[in-house]
């Protein structure tokens, strides 16, 4: 975790320098970042509480049977549909997905879950329906489900073969 913090800090520094040289708006970048952090902090805190409770509540047998690498296709299907139900932004969804991973979920399940949340997350539904119509939303959902399942299967394969 410390390594990730160092990499992200170095990236933040590099981007600040690039911004200072190219646009001169590096201070605005800092302001935007801190403002967004302040705005989302209560949301993240709530998500941490939710994620912590999920981690202690979800029974180990459930994770083992339904979400772990051993669950195989069952976990991937569950992840592919479960991601849709996470009707929330990344600040709230990622801690929950992180807690499911920490409980013992397999890589395939976690990747199916994230991919499904990215593409099919219900948070987008009102916007898609409003701007493109309900038919577009239905077509997009039906056409995208296979991508989530395939992503999960590839993730499962990577876990079995590489990791």
């Amino acid at each position: 975790m410390a390594q990730t913090t160092i990499i992200l800090s170095a990236l933040a520094l590099a981007l600040t320098l690039v911004n200072a040289k190219t646009t001169g708006k590096h201070l605005e970048g800092l302001r935007v970042g801190f403002r967004q952090l302040a705005q989302t902090a209560p949301l993240i805190l709530g998500a941490f509480i939710l994620a912590g409770m999920i981690e202690v509540l979800v029974p180990a047998e459930f994770v083992q049977n339904w979400l772990s690498a051993e669950a195989g296709i069952r976990g991937i299907l569950l992840g592919s549909f479960g991601g849709m139900l996470l009707a929330m932004g990344p600040y709230a969804a990622f801690p929950i997905i992180g807690s499911i991973l920490a409980s013992g979920a397999g890589l395939g399940t976690t990747i199916a879950l994230i991919t499904s949340w990215c593409i099919l997350g219900m948070i987008k539904a009102p916007f898609e329906t409003a701007f493109f119509g309900p038919k577009f939303f239905i077509y997009k959902t039906l056409c995208s489900i296979p991508f989530c399942i395939v992503a999960g299967l590839v993730g499962h394969l990577v876990e079995m073969v590489v990791l």
Partner: peptide, 9 residues
């Protein structure tokens, strides 16, 4: 901080 800089860039 990364997100803020990307958004401005």
């Amino acid at each position: 901080l990364v997100i803020g800089q990307i958004q401005v860039l």
